[in-house]
């Protein structure tokens, strides 16, 4: 595997055309700009081991309302920049005076980054089928740069996790993770996610997580059943590179989410309905 740990300033390649995120070009050579893991196949990029979330257009994230102003909700998106959710981006027409009736300070929302301009004004929207307010479950935080590992290649890790813990899991690109399910399962899921975050750089992650889950649940190992599910999830979606932080990634990650959600819907009594519920008020 063409992967290695690099520090800022490390020489990566002579091929300028392949340079991607986490690199810079000087004298037609490609160097690493961050401390992280470089992958040299297809494109040359370095995934940092730490760092803040920098919003990008098309990212699905989880935000917390920090302020209600005249026609905007100001949203903490776990980044150096605050998110602005304009009143017109709410799925239905509401009056300025009634804003805090629908979303008040402290509320959590699943939201989409509609636009980011050059001075990092971040515009958010709720006008999308996939988006809703977060009313139940739990939100935990992980390092944003670890999000691709948590999702796994083509969503394999997340699909496995959902299946093993019976929780519904949504991972925001900003490193906030929304879990819904039974209390006991939530604990297990949260602990597992923390373990993934801590050990994401050590090889054999999936196997260790599978083992960890088995031990935690005290069930004897019965690999095949789980494997099948995992493969199913992988089959349904286009194979894409794992560490893809672009909007395509969001789509990849989104697909298995929706699929896995269907069975969960019945027993958890939550899901797509929340948005409608909000509108019916």
């Amino acid at each position: 595997m063409e992967k290695k740990l690099v520090i800022p300033g490390d020489f990566l390649s002579d091929d300028v055309k392949l340079a991607d995120e986490g690199t810079y070009i000087e004298d037609s050579k490609v160097f690493s700009s961050v401390f992280g893991i470089a992958s040299l196949k297809n494109q040359i990029k370095v995934v940092p081991l730490s760092g803040k979330y920098i919003p990008r257009q098309g990212d699905l994230i989880i935000g917390i309302i920090t302020e209600v102003s005249f026609s905007n909700w100001i949203v903490d998106i776990r980044s150096p920049y605050e998110g602005l959710l304009h009143i017109s981006e709410f799925p239905r027409r509401i009056d300025n005076s009634e804003m805090s009736k629908y979303l008040k300070v402290g509320d959590s929302i699943m939201t989409l980054v509609k636009d980011v301009d050059s001075i990092m004004k971040v515009e958010l929207t709720l006008n999308d089928q996939r988006l809703r307010q977060i009313k139940d479950g739990r939100v935990i935080e992980v390092t944003p740069s670890k999000v691709p590992r948590l999702i796994g290649r083509s969503g394999s890790m997340i699909a496995m996790l959902k299946n093993e813990t019976n929780c519904n899991i949504f991972i925001g690109q900003n490193g906030r993770v929304w879990l819904t399910g039974k209390e006991k399962n939530l604990d297990l899921a949260a602990r597992t996610i923390q373990k993934i975050e801590k050990e994401s750089h050590i090889p054999g992650l999936t196997d260790r997580i599978v083992k960890f889950l088995k031990e935690e649940k005290g069930i004897p190992v019965k690999g095949p059943a789980k494997r099948k599910v995992e493969k199913e999830a992988v089959k349904k979606i286009e194979p894409e590179p794992v560490q893809e932080m672009t909007s395509e990634e969001t789509a990849t990650e989104e697909t298995p989410r929706e699929e896995a959600e269907e069975p969960g819907k019945v027993e958890e009594n939550k899901s797509g309905g929340i948005l409608d519920e909000l509108l019916d008020k």
Partner: peptide, 19 residues
């Protein structure tokens, strides 16, 4: 400085998500 940074992740030989 380089050695110290690399040491923080000494056990790292990047593992892909194993399929």
């Amino acid at each position: 400085q380089r050695a110290a940074l690399l040491e923080k992740y000494s056990s790292l030989i990047e593992g892909e998500v194993n399929e």
